Amino acid sequence: MEVKILKSTDSYLELEIQGEDHTLGNLLAGYLRRINGVKFASYFQPHPLLTNIILKILTDGKVKPLDALKTAIEMAEEDNNKFISEISKI
């Protein structure tokens, strides 16, 4: 996985994530949309034969897009750990 910043301002971030596809893009965009201050979060895969996605995050300016992304990753990790814990009980 390689991450490259394509555009960055105080309220907008556009990242290219190489080596990833819809699985990670949909996961991150979904968690980002749950965060207060995130106005828009989406991704797209530029071409079906390429293994890279473009993630776009727009905030209201009260939260920085990179901070929102870090929070989304932490939320996904926490849910994943809960799921693993529940599966371990079976």
Rank of each mutant, 00 (worst) to 15 (best):
I87M: 15
L24Y: 10
L49E: 05
A29Y: 06
I17S: 03
I84H: 05
V63S: 07
K64E: 14
S8K: 14
N52F: 11
A68I: 15
F83Q: 03
Y31I: 04
V38Q: 01
T71D: 09
I87Q: 10
H47E: 10
E77C: 05
I87L: 15
Y43C: 11
I84A: 08
T51D: 10
L32N: 04
A29D: 04
L15W: 01
I57C: 04
K82E: 13
L50T: 11
Q18V: 15
P46F: 09
E16C: 12
D79Y: 06
L15Q: 02
R33K: 15
N26K: 08
A72Q: 00
Q18P: 01
K56S: 06
I84G: 01
L32Y: 04
A76S: 08
G61N: 09
I73K: 00
I73T: 10
E20A: 11
K82I: 15
Y12F: 14
T51Q: 11
F83N: 12
L24E: 03
F44M: 09
P65R: 04
L6A: 06
I90S: 08
L24H: 05
T23V: 08
R33P: 01
L49P: 01
T59E: 08
L69C: 03
P65K: 04
M75H: 07
S11P: 04
K82S: 11
L28C: 00
D60L: 05
Y43Q: 07
K56D: 00
L27T: 12
I84D: 01
F83G: 03
Y43A: 06
L66E: 13
E78R: 14
I17W: 05
T59P: 08
A72I: 00
D21V: 03
V63G: 05
E86C: 02
K7H: 12
T71M: 03
L50V: 06
L50F: 09
A68K: 07
I5S: 06
A72K: 02
D10Y: 02
K62E: 14
L49Y: 09
I35H: 08
N81K: 15
L28N: 00
V38P: 05
F40G: 01
N81F: 10
A72E: 01
H22K: 11
F40D: 10
